[in-house]
């Protein structure tokens, strides 16, 4: 379990919680998205599910790359949503609303992840 971050503060715990939520949301996207792709539907979900799950795992490991990956996935989601439904408000709602709320959380967690990474690299150096 040493790969995962060990929170020492409220912000740390919040980051870990967010990471777990992102994993829990990414896995069904990946699983159901694979079935959808298999049935000839949109490929977005399986790809996005994979990226989001990976982002959540990396975040749980205290890697800023995870947060950046999630933000990237969110930005890509916006582009994809515009491509699929244009500027239609009702159409955009399910596609971008929840992911963007989460993205705000992820952005707020980036400093925590940076600190965690910094601490880890320092620890590694000390051990070495």
């Amino acid at each position: 379990m040493s790969a995962f971050m060990k929170p020492h503060s409220a912000a740390g715990w919040a980051t870990l919680l967010l990471a777990v939520i992102i994993i829990l949301l990414g896995l069904p996207l990946l699983y159901m998205g694979a079935e959808l792709a298999f049935l000839g539907g949109s490929l977005y979900y399986v790809v996005c599910g994979l990226v989001v799950t990976a982002a959540g795992v990396l975040m749980a490991m205290g890697r800023p790359l995870g947060g950046l990956l999630y933000l990237g996935a969110c930005a890509f989601t916006w582009l994809w949503a515009f491509w699929e439904v244009g500027l239609d408000g009702w159409g955009l709602l399910p596609r971008v609303f929840g992911p963007t709320i989460l993205a705000i959380g992820v952005a707020l967690c980036l400093p925590v992840l940076r600190r965690a990474e910094h601490a880890r690299t320092t620890n590694v150096r000390e051990v070495a």
């Binding site: 949301l25 069904p28 996207l29 159901m32 998205g33 959808l36 979900y45 996005c48 989601t77 709602l93 399910p94 596609r95 609303f97 929840g98 992911p99």
Partner: peptide
């Protein structure tokens, strides 16, 4: 749906 998951 309300989210990507129930839309999926």
């Amino acid at each position: 749906g309300m989210s990507p998951i129930d839309q999926l």
